[in-house]
């Protein structure tokens, strides 16, 4: 097994939110004690609904935001302090891709110039070498130099996301955080970008944290998957196994909620209640008010993430150890 590249231990992050102009501010626990290990060359999928803290986790992992508690180690070393030369060198090795490519690109600059920018910032090679690298990157994302001369407005959504991908790869990073990279794209274009991402990952041996609400896309890309609910990881395991045999009641509901062609919705688990509000997290297990199987203990005691055999870990009082698994 390859050594870990990214080690996240017990990170937490909360924000102060004020309701109304004079309201008292309340703490919103966006991420609460999340630990993850991503090995070199591994693709870890992070799924969850809006407000589950998956994007905040991604930002903390990249060092775009400091955690309140906990630590992120990259390649065995703790993250350098922001703004220092060491931080800059580390940041060149990790990049991010966002959902909205148009928002991530400068509309008034030809896209080739934007792909080149990280090379200029990190002082990679001579001017001529940088030009070569831009052409090489455009080819890698299956675009032509003619595309590079265009402005973002003259490209389609899928092409823009390819440009963002090319720019992220410019500094030859080891680690990419992709936050909903294909969610804004149509199905057929989504498939093109997913295939491209898989190819590039295999060619370059990239390590990926792939954040998405789309279970299908996550399963297609990832080796392992972590499911988040209200700032905590509730289940983690290998992608095929997790979606085939979800253990946590929330993962079960998520998998069952994913519509599939050729299957009628009979037997679907439809969760009662509203989407969770991070500002008013329930006591005990955050999922218990919506959980069809909740017991008294769930309302008082936070379940810890524990191994249930194999590489699966689940945070649920009802799923603890192999006995329960066989009994169920």
């Amino acid at each position: 097994m390859s050594p870990p590249l990214v080690e996240v231990s017990a990170i937490s992050r909360s924000y102060a939110m004020r309701s109304g102009m004079f309201g008292r501010s309340t703490a919103v626990h966006a991420v609460d004690g999340v630990s993850l290990t991503i090995r070199k060359g591994e693709i870890l999928g992070l799924v969850g609904e809006s407000g589950s803290g998956k994007s905040t986790t991604g930002r903390i992992v990249l060092g775009l935001e400091p955690p309140d508690r906990g630590e992120v180690r990259f390649d065995g070393k703790p993250m350098a302090a922001p703004g220092t030369a060491a931080w800059r060198a580390q940041r060149a090795r990790m990049q991010m891709i966002f959902q909205d490519p148009l928002g991530a690109l400068d509309r008034r600059l030809p896209v080739a110039a934007q792909i080149r920018e990280p090379l200029d910032i990190h002082g990679v090679g001579t001017i001529a070498e940088r030009e070569d690298r831009v052409r090489e990157l455009l080819r890698a994302v299956e675009l032509t130099p003619a595309h590079g001369a265009r402005y973002p407005g003259a490209l389609s959504g899928g092409q823009r996301q390819r440009i963002v991908l090319a720019r992220a790869l410019a500094t030859k990073p080891d680690f990419l955080v992709c936050d909903e990279p294909v969610s804004a794209l149509d199905v057929s274009i989504q498939a093109q970008v997913v295939n491209l991402l898989c190819d590039l990952q295999a060619q370059l041996g990239l390590t990926l944290l792939f954040i998405s609400h789309d279970l299908r896309v996550v399963r297609q890309i990832s080796n392992n998957v972590a499911v988040m609910y209200l700032g905590r990881i509730v289940e983690i395991g290998s992608a095929d196994d997790l979606f085939a045999r979800p253990e946590h009641p929330y993962t079960q509901a998520l998998v069952s909620a994913s519509p599939a062609p050729g299957r009628r919705s009979a037997g679907r688990i439809v969760l009662a209640g509203d989407p969770p509000n991070p500002a008013a997290r329930p006591q005990g297990c955050a999922f218990h008010p919506r959980c069809p199987r909740a017991i008294a203990r769930c309302a008082s005691e936070v379940p810890a993430l524990s191994s249930v055999g194999g590489d699966r870990q689940v945070a649920c009082h009802l799923v603890s150890g192999a006995e329960t698994r066989e009994a169920a």
Binding site: V187, S188, A191, V194, N195, C198, R219, A244, A260
Partner: peptide
Amino acid sequence: GALPPLDGPRRRLTAIPGT
């Protein structure tokens, strides 16, 4: 073909070329 499956073996997605 462009829709990733949720169960069974993973296969390469058949993307429709172009836009």
